[in-house]
Amino acid sequence: MSVLVYVETWEGKLKKASYEAASYGARLASRLGTDAYAIVLNASDDASVLGKYGIKKTFSVKGEHFQHFHNYKYVEAIAHVAEQIQAKALVLSGTFTGKMVAPLLAVKINAALITNVVSDPQEVTPLTVKRSAFSNKGFVYYESQSEVNILSILPNALGVSESTGQGEVEEIVHTPETNIEIQIVEIDKVKGKVPLPEAEIVVSAGRGLKSPDNWGMIEELAEALGASTACSKPVSDMHWRPHSEHVGQTGITINPQLYIAIGISGAIQHLAGVSGSKTIVVINSDPEAPFFKAADYGVVGDAFKVVPALTEAIRKFKAQ
């Protein structure tokens, strides 16, 4: 019996969201009195770094079949390693990639799948974990009825537990058998930005900014904080900002450590996508904006004065 963590890569590099999954897997393994292993596909990074997060050994799968993400091929390779090490629990991150993999993997290895996991298990036998539900308006404790389980962690819900150490790495070969073909035509990447679902700090703005020309100060604040930028639905509907920045119920769900909402009133559909944030700061000129009820910190004031002042204060703080 053991624990297997699926570690994602982005252009060959190990993804930060996966360090959180690795940490989770290591803690779970120690509670089960066993070891945590990892599998990584198409990595150019040295996977021994996963040892810092408690991974004993990483199986690194390379080769032409895995150069592009292909959910069925990736699932086959993960299932192959899971069988080799007799994994009873598999852990991955609930990213877009994780969501392409997890349900297929569950069927392939006949496992229970629990997604949106937000805490370490309450119990390990039977496995009982807390997950987020009702679009952040509730939590549900799920009890597994299965011998083998897959846990998909809500990105940023738990963070990493880092120590020292170096893991082993074993390169393995796997030839996929699936006959499902996916012909990739085009990949359109947003350059140089942390994907929103994985961002630790997000600066977001809404209609209160009055015009797309006023986004410069939002980007400056984001840069000072090392944050990703997002926007409300009306702003993406008016094409002031790309749809890929829209956070909220019909857009992207985010769970950052810090969410700063500027000129966003806080409609319930918006809150559904952002209320998983650990700390929420609302900047709005309207003291009656409903968002203040969901905020930890609020500034009632003119965004055009408050935001540049905040950027300046952050820069000063960072310079210290």
Binding site: K130, V140, S144, G301, V306
Partner: peptide, 23 residues
């Protein structure tokens, strides 16, 4: 078969009221 069972529900802890900062 059914592989999971919801055993308990919980509401999020109610937020403390917002702390306002002077602009």
């Amino acid at each position: 078969e059914r592989k999971t069972k919801a055993v308990l529900f919980e509401k999020p802890a109610s937020k403390a009221s917002v702390k306002l900062v002077d602009p």
